[in-house]
Design a protein around this nucleic acid. Structure first.
Lengths: 240, 240
DNA sequence: CGGAACCTTGAGATTAGTCAAATGACGTGG
DNA sequence: CCACGTCATTTGACTAATCTCAAGGTTCCG
């Protein structure tokens, strides 16, 4: 795993307002926690943090098989969790946006964690989180909630992989758009290759499928990486 | 969700030995917990239980969308978690054997839980588990560990779905064999249709693929539901 | 022994993958 | 600001894997 270096962080650790400028601003959107507990969780994370550390695109943050010393809070950029097989094929299990946590597991990491774009990552020591959780049930419940959430997302992804290319892509675009904040434009932060590996397709099929959606007037393509979702309801209705 | 009925259970709740005859015997194999904590968790589960309740094959235990009042400990038989789509296709996310817990989620069940064979199921009240977990960190850590485990299994399953039919089937057979206790014979407890829906294949492809493995001398078929894995290392080596 | 459900096999259709080539986008240095 | 090189994306023709539809065979249970 990459070495940890001390990097400057906002100084006013306790000050609520600092979160909005600082590394943890994105955690403000976490749905599972509210009010006092939210502050507690944020303070706990701040106390445990190492970093944030900058990673360049395609840099490996942890390898499959590495001991699970740390979990990772994305501050900026996009992170992917994936596995690469002997024959060179790669599957991306999930993409993680700022404010999201990636790499929770026990003992050893079952997946690699990599920067899909240049990214700032906060490292959180797993053992410290666990020992705090053993004393404070609010932290324990935060961990359980986050893990349950990740489980549900992984289940939905496993279900998605069984469907047609068109359905997979439509669902992916809608989901990404809503996670990024549903503006008019959908700027794909990752390459088509990453999308293909996430959806279990080839880049060619991804490209052809976008072209097909474009011909059906469901999306418009401003540039390869910039789309407009013209008809969300119809995209949602694509099945199998 | 199915109504809860009181059903006779072993009387000596506190007596350690009773677990080996009674409903919770299977939990003895849980890897995550040891010694005193194991006893604690078992006592806790016994205190929360409703049932066990008998379900017949294909009976629905909970529906997708039902509120998450209970989670389910399989005592006997095989349980599946799945989703059925409008067009009638069904995906089975996982099979659960005696001693395993299925149906953990928050708020609403994201998947249906159904009996894949006749089964005995213990119902555990989620809210009670959570409130005990808030007071006893060993229960909290049991819940977190079980959820983390389920997450990893789901990740492996999502990865498996991306591979060739031969690889999916070989991996499934090996995994099932080891979970069932790796005797000489592998008795498939579920139908080919269930296996197909689990692996994202059709029954025809499942059948043809087993035939192919048989021709390669990797498995032998005593009856459609009874196989012998003739060459585990070679089965393991099948990729893509 | 009979019937129903389940499994197997075959032939043809469909979807997505592979290989190859052309086009387009973007950053760098002149 | 433009030319260039590199990398990413698109498109086409062909191939391979899996599905679909249909028929026949087995197994199991009453």
């Amino acid at each position: 795993m990459a070495p940890l270096e001390s990097i400057s962080v906002p100084s006013a650790r306790e000050h609520r307002a600092s979160f909005h400028d600082g590394a943890l601003a994105a955690t403000a959107n976490w749905p599972a926690i509210q009010g006092d507990d939210e502050k507690l969780v944020q303070r706990t994370l701040v106390a445990l943090r190492r970093g944030p550390i900058r990673h360049h695109r395609d840099q490996v943050i942890v390898c499959e098989g590495d001991p699970a010393h740390y979990i990772f809070l994305v501050i900026e950029g996009i992170v992917r969790s994936c596995r690469t097989f002997q024959n060179g094929t790669r599957n991306i299990l999930g993409f993680y946006l700022p404010g999201e946590v990636v790499g929770w597991t026990d003992l050893k990491h079952a997946l690699s964690v990599e920067a899909a774009t240049d990214a700032m990552i906060l490292y959180l020591k797993r053992s410290a989180l666990l020992s705090i959780a053993a004393r404070d049930s609010r932290i324990a419940s935060f961990l359980l909630g986050a893990t349950t959430n990740e489980l549900r997302r992984t289940q939905e992804h496993a279900l998605l992989i069984g469907r047609s290319a068109k359905c997979r892509l439509a669902t992916f675009l809608l989901d990404l758009s809503s996670r990024l904040g549903k503006t008019k434009y959908l700027d794909l932060p990752m390459s088509h290759q990453d999308i293909a590996d996430h959806l279990g397709l080839t880049i060619e099929t991804v490209s052809r499928t976008i072209t097909e959606l474009e011909r059906s007037q469901l999306v418009a393509r401003l540039s390869p990486r910039t789309l407009i979702l013209l008809n969300r309801p119809s995209l949602l209705r694509i099945k199998n």
